[in-house]
């Protein structure tokens, strides 16, 4: 008898291949056509090789950023869905992206007044603030984390931070508002590798948490009590899920802004193929999420060229109808 886990492994490998392929091909697509031979030519010095410069300095960092952000958001989506026992949860359900957005807004508007510059750092700080508040609320009255209180606290934080964002925007001038709005749309127009390198250590830490979580998340889907009777340290698993998921989300949002729907579309599609086991769903979602956002980013660069659409618009245009379809399918005929 083959284990159900083993049967899913080829799919995970295939999704990894898909991600690598997307990252490799995407930089060749764009307004300026690149020639494969010239990009990797050693005959020309790098300083004179325009093709190589566009490839390595402009487009590759963007592809990599899309891959890391997309993969991280998709995997974080899986973790939050497992933690909240709800396939409709997203990395943003608990207010982390709203906190991050508030941080970014504040940095864009009051950046000159703050001792630390940097929208990235400020959005991370905002995410952290939201995480701490939600955790404190959810763990205040219970020995474990109550998923109901988590959800309510998250929804409340989302609207509270939205109000703060509107307040900050009201105080800001025209150009600041424009920048802020662009940031809120979710944009991968990163300058070089630096934003990615800054977020990567945090994402790596979170991913280690995800690897440990894969099996406890399976058991948690039975409910907290049933998981505990099977030997799961429920409190620890919930804490690791909450903090690693939040860390990953905060880091990803600090790079690309609150890009929507990746964290829900991708896990859902992946589950249709590999089943429910988180040991397959987590890695497959990471790779498919990476490939998905890389492709969306390419679309956003070419669909209205020479204009570049923020990639968040593309994911939302695909994701909105998809979400509704999921909702109808779920309520309509869940046999």
């Amino acid at each position: 008898m083959t284990s159900p886990l083993r049967r899913g492994v080829p799919w995970v490998s295939a999704s990894a291949g898909l991600a690598v392929l997307a990252i490799g091909i995407a930089p060749f697509i764009g307004q300026t056509p690149l020639e494969f031979g010239r990009v990797f030519s050693w005959a020309l010095p790098f300083a004179d090789n325009v093709d190589a410069q566009i490839f390595f300095l402009a487009r590759l960092p963007r592809s990599l950023a899309a891959a890391v952000v997309g993969g991280t958001l998709a995997a974080a989506g899986v973790v939050f869905q497992g933690l909240l026992r709800n396939p409709l949860a997203t990395p943003y359900t608990l207010g982390i992206s709203a906190g991050a957005s508030f941080g970014a807004m504040a940095a864009i508007t009051f950046g000159s007044l703050l001792p630390f510059g940097g929208v990235t750092g400020a959005s991370l700080a905002g995410a952290l603030l939201a995480v701490v508040v939600v955790y404190a609320l959810a763990s205040a009255r219970h020995s474990g984390l109550s998923t109901t209180v988590l959800l309510l606290a998250g929804v409340t934080m989302n609207s509270f931070f939205s109000a703060l964002i509107l307040f900050v925007q009201y105080l800001s001038d025209f150009t600041e508002t424009f920048r802020a709005l662009r940031w809120l749309m979710g944009d991968l127009d990163v300058a070089g590798y630096r934003p990615l390198v800054g977020a990567l250590p945090l994402i790596m830490v979170a991913l280690v948490g995800f690897v440990w979580l894969a099996r406890p998340l399976n058991l948690l889907s039975l409910g907290a009590d049933a998981a505990a009777t099977r030997g799961v340290d429920v409190r620890r698993a919930q804490r690791v899920a909450f903090f690693s998921g939040s860390l990953a989300t905060g880091a990803a949002v600090s790079v690309g802004g609150p890009i929507g729907f990746v964290g829900i579309i991708v896990p859902h599609l992946v589950r249709l193929i590999v089943g429910a086991d988180h040991r397959l769903v987590l890695p497959a979602s990471f790779f498919v999420g990476a490939a998905f956002l890389v492709v969306c980013d390419v679309v956003s660069r070419i669909v209205m060229a020479p204009l570049e659409l923020p990639v968040g618009i593309i994911t939302a245009l695909i994701g909105g109808p998809f979400f509704l379809w999921m909702l109808i399918r779920k309520t309509g005929g869940h046999a």
Binding site: P4, Q81, G82, R85, N86, P87, N218, S221, L222, G223, A226, R271, G275, A276, D277
Partner: peptide
């Protein structure tokens, strides 16, 4: 026992 996801 209610499962949140479609396990076999």
């Amino acid at each position: 026992t209610h499962l949140a996801f479609d396990y076999t």
